[in-house]
Computed example of a mutant assay.
Amino acid sequence: MIDVEAADKAAVFMQLCHAHGLALISLTDISGFIVGPDIEARAHVRHCCRMFGVASHLSVPFCTVITRKGYGLGAQAMTVGGFEGPVFTVSTGEFGMMARKAVS
């Protein structure tokens, strides 16, 4: 799962590759972003949104390989904002949106 440090590291890495014209390959196995009061107190949403902002400005090729699972916004962050964003997306596992539980 993506925490504050992982989001910052990914955003800086994408910026570095963009600056030097290096293509990116994302090997994705993620079940989403970490949630909860402790992580939210560290401005988790702001750090994760930085990944989306940086990814939206990439001009280098970006490819995604989903190795096991890719769910929710965490998977979208690892695929430059959506599954249609990369040059190609290959999945050897499963991917999709987070499931909602019915409230009774």
Rank of each mutant, 00 (worst) to 15 (best):
A77C: 11
V35L: 09
A55Y: 07
S91F: 02
T67F: 00
K101Y: 13
G74E: 14
T28F: 00
H44I: 08
V80E: 12
D8T: 00
A10R: 00
A99W: 05
D29V: 05
C49T: 10
A11I: 02
G93R: 04
E40D: 09
M1C: 15
I66E: 12
D38R: 00
F33Q: 08
T89F: 01
S56I: 06
F13M: 08
L27Q: 09
H20G: 04
F52E: 10
A77F: 04
C63A: 06
L27T: 06
M78I: 02
H47C: 12
F52S: 11
G36A: 10
C48R: 07
M51L: 13
H57N: 14
H44Q: 14
G81A: 03
F52H: 05
R68I: 06
H57V: 14
P61K: 06
V12P: 08
E84A: 00
G93Q: 08
S104G: 15
T28N: 07
M1Q: 15
M78Q: 05
M1T: 15
G74C: 14
I66Q: 07
V80C: 13
I25S: 06
L73M: 12
A6T: 13
A7H: 03
M78F: 04
T64E: 14
H57S: 14
G93F: 05
V103G: 12
A75E: 10
H18V: 10
V12I: 15
G70I: 05
M98L: 13
M98I: 10
I25A: 03
F95S: 08
V4H: 02
V4M: 03
A6H: 01
Y71G: 08
K9Y: 08
I39A: 04
T28R: 02
S26L: 05
F88E: 05
F83A: 04
I66K: 02
M1F: 15
T67A: 04
V35P: 07
M78K: 02
L16E: 15
E5K: 00
V80F: 07
A55D: 14
F13E: 14
A6K: 03
C48F: 09
A19S: 13
E5H: 01
T79Y: 02
G21M: 04
I66S: 09
A55H: 04
E94H: 02
R100S: 10
I25L: 13
G21F: 00
M51D: 06
V35F: 05
P86G: 03
L27W: 03
C48N: 06
L27P: 05
F88L: 07
D8R: 00
T89M: 03
F95L: 08
A7M: 05
M14F: 01
